[in-house]
Simulated scan of single mutants.
Amino acid sequence: MKRKVLFICNHNAGRSQMAQGLLNHYSGDKYEAFSAGLNPTESVNPHTIEVLKEIGIDISGKTPLHVSEYRDVKFDEIVIACDYDPDNHELPATERITEKKFPDPYLFSGSDEDILKSFREVRDEIMEWTDKEFTGDNEMNNKNSDNGNANNNIYKSNFPDDNECRPVTVTVFVSGDPSGPPLRCPDTGRSLSEVIKDTDIIMKKQGFVIRYEERPESENTTESLLLIGGRPIEDLVPLPDPSKYCGMACADCGGKPAGTTCSRIYEYIPESVLRLAVKKAADSMD
């Protein structure tokens, strides 16, 4: 019997539709995937349809659904790909809930081609995760096996030593004011250094070690306050559009005042986007 999996995101127009299409396409013999939204839109984002069609998956007939549509269905697993408040949202019955956040396409900005490129990157990240989560030999699957603890130890022992990994440095330029608040990811509230520590564990599987450093703004020779592998994060991933969260007048310029750096544009980078930027910086070194 196929295992039922429900993917949930905010609008059911991007991430959850991608995950449903990918799992049904590649593992439809073992899983039956569904998707829903906490606040669904009227239609699926056309970029979602396009990037799936590029790899042979047609979801053009799909319509966003509210999670309440599945209130009478029992799922083996529910995957929540967005911010979620259990006090405000009632989920269907399930044996297991997994929270796995992916970059929110709604926040992408730039030209149509830039946005489409970002949708492809989210698609590929979801594809990689669903493959490892549901079909691959990974930590999550090992945790669910009969010998979970033993397999987890084997899995972790396969990490290369730091001296065998290639370094990727994450540099944050900070002001001289020690009382200034650290940059935090808004989806979890965790500081940048905490997120980088977790990302280091993930990237070790790919042979990279992540180094985090804070340097004074006076040493900055770029227009970016956040460098990954020596590259501005803006060159690696589209940053969220400040006009959607920033109350400052400078948001009218797209978040980057001419000739200046502004920490405001880094205040709404979710963990998933930050991890994606680190991965892209590492991939560019291959």
Rank of each mutant, 00 (worst) to 15 (best):
N39E: 12
T48M: 08
F108M: 09
A277I: 11
K132P: 01
P270M: 12
R211M: 13
T171M: 04
L52T: 03
P40I: 05
L116G: 03
C262L: 09
M18W: 03
K197E: 15
N141Q: 15
E42M: 11
Y268G: 03
K279G: 02
I49K: 02
V44P: 05
L91A: 13
G230W: 00
S193Y: 14
I55G: 04
T98R: 13
L225Y: 02
Q17E: 07
G28Y: 10
P178C: 06
F7L: 02
N220C: 14
N12R: 08
D87V: 15
G189C: 08
P105Y: 00
Y70P: 04
R15P: 11
E42I: 10
A13Y: 08
V51D: 01
F108S: 02
Y106N: 14
T130V: 13
E164Q: 15
S60Q: 01
P103R: 09
I8D: 08
N147K: 08
A281M: 07
G14Y: 09
D286T: 11
G180Y: 14
N153H: 09
F75L: 12
T41E: 13
E164S: 15
I115L: 03
K205D: 13
D161E: 14
R184H: 09
T199I: 15
E90Q: 14
S191Q: 12
G254K: 03
E139P: 04
S175C: 11
F34R: 07
N142H: 09
S118E: 15
R211G: 04
K62F: 01
R123P: 08
H47F: 07
P238E: 10
G247M: 11
G28R: 05
L276G: 00
E125I: 01
A33H: 02
E125R: 05
E42G: 11
C82P: 04
H89G: 02
T199M: 13
